[in-house]
Amino acid sequence: MRSRTKVGDSIFNVFNNTLLLLLGIATLYPFLNLLAVSLNQSLDTMRGGIYLWPRDFTLDNYRLIFSNDRLFDSAALSVLRTLIGTGLSVICTIMVAYALSRREYMLRKSLNAIIVVSMYVNGGIIPIYLMIKNLGLTNTFAVYIIPGLIGAFNVMIMRSYFDQLPDGLVESAKLDGANEWQTLFRVVMPISLPVIATITLFISVGHWNSWTDNFLYNSKESLTLLQYQLMQILMQTTEQVSGGIGSGTDDAILNFTTPQSIRATMSMVVTLPILFVYPFLQKYFIKGMTLGAMKE
């Protein structure tokens, strides 16, 4: 009986590990393939057969992207948006969450209700578009930052963390004569770095990956983000293949390389920064996610 269980267990083990290994490969392979294509000479890629390694290694695709003024400006703008947007959003989220975690705060309940209900009620895509237009936010950099300044989900994760800090913490800071700002920035924030790291990751990835606000609100060339450039190249190539309007021919960059290579290279450019950051924060965001969800 006992040995039968043992044999069964090791069969299960092998099966389980194989399955997970296959899943890992299925997740990783497309990215490795994109990387290989981006590092391969573009005309050579057209012959097919690029899997995990570049056949004709070159950095030309990357050189081309960064030497193209339009793409370089977009990349710079995306970085700027991510830095400014993340900085402001994180600070505002922390302040709002801190205020909402203070039990004696008189507006706590009403503000909390406003935030929670905002997760369920929304005017819809066209009313929001028209309001942003009427506020004069179209074709401005501000439209990337202001409408999403604080998000209900992030505030709630942050607040759950503050809620479970020891009660005496804020009180003793108060007794020492600290005002709210000092209490928040000198006492509460230093012991909340894990959750701050989590929120910073979520918000910065959100900014970096966003393109719909660019698509909806900003048609100005100088306000184009990197993700939107990639999106346009993607749409052009699918439209060309599907026999739609081929508007991509005036795109100068496609004269030097193939759509496939430029897509792979740009995908890598927008993906690599994320890959270098999130694994180091894994411990924190898992904790942050489960803390927020359990509280709900």
Binding site: V96, L111, G123, M131, I150, A152
Partner: peptide
């Protein structure tokens, strides 16, 4: 505490609820 929260929740409310007027 009001300074820390009201302006930012205000912005959230503006972009979440004002479009309902539309």
């Amino acid at each position: 505490l009001i300074l820390m929260s009201v302006p930012f929740v205000g912005i959230l409310a503006l972009f979440s609820y004002l479009p309902l007027w539309g």
